[in-house]
Structures are given as C-alpha cells and as structure tokens.
Design a protein around this nucleic acid. Sequence first.
DNA 1: GCCGTTTTCGGCCCGACTGTTTTCAGTCG
Length: 573
Amino acid sequence: MKNVLVAKILYEIADLLEMEDVEFKPRAYRKAARSVEALSKPIEQVSAEGKLDELPGVGANIAKKIVEIIETGSLKYYEELRKRTPVDLEGLLSVEGIGPKTVKLLYTRLGVKSLDDLERAARLHKIRMIKGLGSKTEENILGSIELARSKKERVLLGSALPIAERISEGLKEAIAADGIVIEVEVAGSLRRMKETVGDIDILATCMQPRHVLDIFAAMRGVRKVLDKGETKCSVLLEDNMQVDLRVVEEKSFGSALMYFTGSKDHNIAMRRIAMEKGYKLNEYGLFNDTVQIAGRTEEEVYKHLDLDYIPPELREDHGEIEAAKKHELPNLIRYGAIKGDLHTHTKWSDGLQTIEQMAQAAEDIGYSYIAITDHYSRMKIARGLTELQLRNQMKQIDQIDGKLSGIRVMKGAEIDIRKDGSLDARKELLKELDVVVASVHGTFKQTKKEMTNRIISAMESGYVDVIGHPTSRKIGEKKPCEIDMERVFETSKRTQTYLEINSQPQRLDLDDANVRLALEFGCRLAVNTDAHNHEQLKNIRLGVAIARRGWAEAEDIITTQPLINLMKTLRKS
DNA sequence: GCCGTTTTCGGCCCGACTGTTTTCAGTCG
C-alpha cells in the first residue's frame, strides 16, 4: 500500500512548486494528494483498475506520475524539483510560521538546508539580516524549532493504531494458516490510547514463540530488524516506526499485558498494592511466595488484589486505583455508543464528498443522525459558504433527509468566532439551522483573557450549540490557545453550550485532561469527527478514546443520545 | 494541472493577521 508515499510526494511537489512561484499547480497537486490520502483501498489497486483519473483532482498528468511512483518508488519530475532546492522541506515547513517562500529565501541567502542549519542561523542572528525577515521572525523560529523536532519523535494515535492493527491481524492470519493457536494484543501507550505514541508494543502468546518471531521479522513493511531473541523482536518499519513484539507463556499473558500496557506509574502503584498484601507482581504473574496465583488474564490479577478491573485508558495512576478499590470507577462510554455526528463537512466547503455520500456513510456505520456543518464565513475561511449557498444547501439537505429513512440529516454550519467574540453570521440565519457549531479559526496574538472572552461571548450569544475544537491545538504543530478553561467550563454548564471532543487525529481537542476537568464542572460534551470525507467518520473511536481517558460515561456525551433526546438537548428544537 | 448543465479554455478562495515594511509578502485556515 503506497498511498502514504504517493500522497507525500504529491504534497511535496506542491510545496516545491510554490517555492518557485508557480501558480495554481500547487493547489492541483494538494487536491490530488488529499484524494489519495482519503482513499481506503490501496492506490495500486485503483491504478491496476485504470481508475486513477476518477479520483477527484487527479487528471491524466498526475495519474501518469502516480503510476511512476507505484512502479519505481519515486518520480523523476519530483527528483528534479528537489535537486533545484535540496533542503529538508518537510522538517523546515514543520516550523510554525515558515512556509515554502521562507524556506527558499533561507536557502538561497544562508544555505539553510535543515532544522540544524536553521537553528544555527537563528542563534547567530543571521536571519534578521535578511531583507524581509527580522528579529521577531528569528525569535519565533527559535521558539518553534523544538516543537518541530519533537514532532518526529512521537506518532499520532490515529496513525499508529491502523499500523498496529494491521500487524497484529497479519500475524494472526499468518500463524493461523500454519494451524497454530495464537493470541495477539496491542499493548503499550497505544492500548491506553494516548494521543501520541513513541513505538508500537505487541504481545502474543503461542506454543511456538520462535516461529512467531520469525514470521514477524519477515513481515512486509519491515525495513530493518533491530534485534531478535528467544521471546522478543524489535523491528523498524519503512516509515521509521519501531515495533516491539514479545511472546510470553499463556499462563502469564494477563500479567504481561498489564506490565507492557503500563503506564509505568500505574504499574508501580499496582506492585505496591501487591506487596502490601504479601504478594509479588511482575510480568510473569501475581505470586504468593513462588506460587503463581493469577496471571492468565488481567481481570484475575486485579481481582486478586481486591480491585475492580481498570480499563487501559485509565491506567495513568491518576486516581483510578483508589476508585477501583472503592468500586467507584466510572462506567466508561463504550466505543460503539455514539449515535451520530454533529460536525462534518462536504464538498460544499472544504470536504471531499457530497451530502448524500456522507449521510450514507453515517448510516452504514449505524448512526441515526448526522449534521452537515460546512464552513460558513463572510471571510471565506476554508472555502466557507455564502448565505445564498448555505440556503441552497439547506434546501438540498431537506430533500435528501426526506428521501432517507434510516438516518436524519440535520442542517448545520460551522461558524467562525471572530476576534471580538461575535459570530460571523446573521442571527436570523442561525435560527434556521438545526445545529450551530462555532469555532475559533486564526488565533492571532490574543491574551488569555481576550481568548477566553472570545469563546465565552460565543457561548452566551444564545445561538450556538457546540464549540468546535475549543483550544485550537494541533498536536506537535500548534500549542493550545491560552484559555481560562475553568471559566469556559462554567459558562458551558450555565448556557448549556456543549464543548466538542474533536476526533481528528491531530486535534483531539478537548484533550483527556480537559475532558476530565469539564466533567467535574458538570459539563456535557459532544464527540464529533469534523470529518472532511466519509473515511474520517471512522475517527470517532479516537474521540471516544479521549472521552474514556477523561473518565466520561455515556450520559456525559450528548452524541450518545438517541435523536429524540438530542433534539431536546439542542437549543433550536 | 484540473475541471465543466452557464465553459474543452479560462478560471482556479480569499480575508486577516504578522512582521516587515512605508504599501506588502507570506502564512494560515
């Protein structure tokens, strides 16, 4: 599956062309790249079927280039562009505030090719000497460069999860084909559903550990075997992700799973409890002297320590052990509990699919409602709709909704919260919508107080149902805005304006800590995907994971409610 | 380089903000 590679090259061509002041082509390449990225099947398959030019944004020329990438792993056109400006484009562009034009400028004037070069140039105050740049730019670069570097070290949950699942499924299938019984589980921070992970840990139990390790080391996608022993094998995948596989005896599977799931702090606390009871806990089991009294499953280990079972998402030593002791753990929202999505986009604004396609996809995953909330903006953010366009869309949604019986399609919009906290839409228009999502786009350089008031104003307007991606953070790219969250939570509760848990892999905003705090304030939240294509509707599990990590129960999340209850919850019903 | 019930050629999103500038380029969403 070369989708990621193809998309990456197309994106980079766009940046390279932009560097050279080429007009319009960058946009064309980006559109094609997004199409490839959104694809659920291998690009090779689409190519083999001769259907590349059916992808939105892919014409004869780009199709030809994609074929070349599939066949050779690279692209002459791309290599030539790179030769003209041989820099670590991806790295340099990951610095906030630096775009293709600045990369070009820094390269031609200072020979900056890498993040290290950039940092050196900034420290030596060479950047401020360039016409068009200044001391402020230099300071900003130094401020963002660490963040840009750290991005490489951890991978988004949303990226790592499918890789881990593919590997564990592949392993199961390969072993099963040999007629051998195997049990495989993903462990580590990935199992705890942390928003980013450093590597992938997989645990297996099998009577023939060596056979499992051999198959694992020879799997497709493995670039390098880092080390391989009797029970453990570490490999580096083609995309630089490290995967560790451990094979343990069946009688130790539960305790090993606990041990390798962590967190470290949770494990330490657990071992202390075992000690207090006169036992010993390690990855091989729970022991009374030398006799193993538990270890086959996690459940029996917790039980023998007089604790309720603690779901992996809670294992951070943030009070979960005390709660488990007192039988006060939350009844966490289940992964399948979501009944609908209140934040989605279509090709009317910057999405990829039609309203029908999004609604159909939502119905297919078992939802009973979906709100179409394309960007609406008087300032044309992300191809926002005009009032006339939105009214046309509303008519079309009504027609589509009339035709579909299995799912309710709701009229909505994502409205920009302007700098002064006012909504970028006429109130009369908002009244006609079923769902109003209001979000901050463009965080400027506002103070904490200004930003807090900006969001609170929107909540107090009386026209907003959901605040979209409340802190505007992007993991590894953009820090969350400084906001007085407690004031926001208080207002959310008072005005019954629901804060979103945005399920986009790079957002996950609110984050787990804020979710937990919001719940303490008595807020209810909305888990949405902000999907820009139908595949992204499936990101909902990431949002639910964050809800679980924030100790949320189903009742805390309005999108678990059936339609009739939801309508009572929203203000415009 | 792509695309089309107003077009197969001529458009293609655009406004705000920042940091640099004396009127604007680059970045962002």
